[in-house]
């Protein structure tokens, strides 16, 4: 499974999203806001925990986090840059 698909499954499971499947999330869909899948600020905190828990990747810089949390693709790229994952 690609890292992008793995992240989509984790996001749905850990953030308890309903009425959406991994297949319905495109890699470059916005994660936050009405144009994307509609995550909110509390979800952002859960995403920080998700990255730490599953990939041992920390996100401490606020500005950096804004970019990292843009989409599944930016999340996956960030995890790869920190862990060397494929």
């Amino acid at each position: 499974m690609s890292l992008e698909n793995e992240l989509k499954e984790l996001i749905i499971k850990d953030l308890k999203l309903v009425d959406i499947t991994p297949e319905e999330i495109k890699d470059d869909d916005f994660l936050f806001g009405d144009e994307g899948i509609g995550l909110d600020s509390l979800d952002a905190v859960e995403l920080v925990v998700l990255l730490q828990k599953h990939y041992q990747v920390e996100t401490k810089d606020l500005e950096e986090s804004r970019e990292v949390f843009t989409s599944v693709k930016t999340l996956a790229d960030y995890v790869r840059s920190k862990t060397g994952a494929a």
């Binding site: 509390l42 905190v45 859960e46 925990v49 730490q52 828990k53």
Partner: peptide, 13 residues
Amino acid sequence: DDGDKCASPTLFA
């Protein structure tokens, strides 16, 4: 299981 850094903020709330 995951330590204080990974405790769920939603569950805590």
